[in-house]
Nucleic acid binder design. Sequence first.
DNA 1: CGGCTTTGACCAGCGC
DNA 2: GCGCTGGTCAAAGCCG
Length: 202
Amino acid sequence: MDDQESTPAPLPLPLPLPPPLLSLLNVPFLFPTSVPSSSFNPPLESTQNTLPDMDWVSLLSGLGQENKVMIGSGSNNMMPENGGGYQIQQDDKGNKDKRKGSRMKKTSRPRFAFQTRSEDDILDDGYRWRKYGQKSVKNSIYPRSYYRCTHHTCNVKKQIQRLSKDTNMVVTTYEGIHNHPCEKLMETLAPLLRQFHFLSSF
DNA sequence: CGGCTTTGACCAGCGC
DNA sequence: GCGCTGGTCAAAGCCG
């Protein structure tokens, strides 16, 4: 049913790319484009440096702590490989949820959580999202919002939650990989691609 | 009128 | 087994 379950491992990229580009490359990593890169903060510098009021386990759950992969810090902390986010994976044994249909809580899809400093809850990552739920969560005065990609064949979800102790901080968790190009990006890049194609023909 | 948000209800996982 | 919690559904309402 869900053909995203067999997604290949993320490609190591030399530079951090905006989400639409990463999506085109089928790389399950996103970082905010609507905030200055200088204000971007990876959720962890190391596994010890957790946010005091952020329930990361809960936010990234559905997998259980034993299945959570925390990637250490590195020189390029924009990259998930270098600690720019959590990558959540799950082995076959972990997928023991017996729920039917879309109420499945546990998935084997990759998850990435990113912390951004922004006044806007919703980061413009180039994709269209439809909100399908909002829940108040424990230990946070702000609710958690649930979004789904509006593309017909795309099943990517994201959760957005603002930190109660640092109200400028927004934690965005992406689940799954877009299986379609970003419309906004394609519109933006079309002239550039044409130019590139023209120049490369020489 | 279609697409989206809001929001209460429902359901399953988990800890005790 | 029970209660709490998180994730999702779906009806109702809003908006362009």
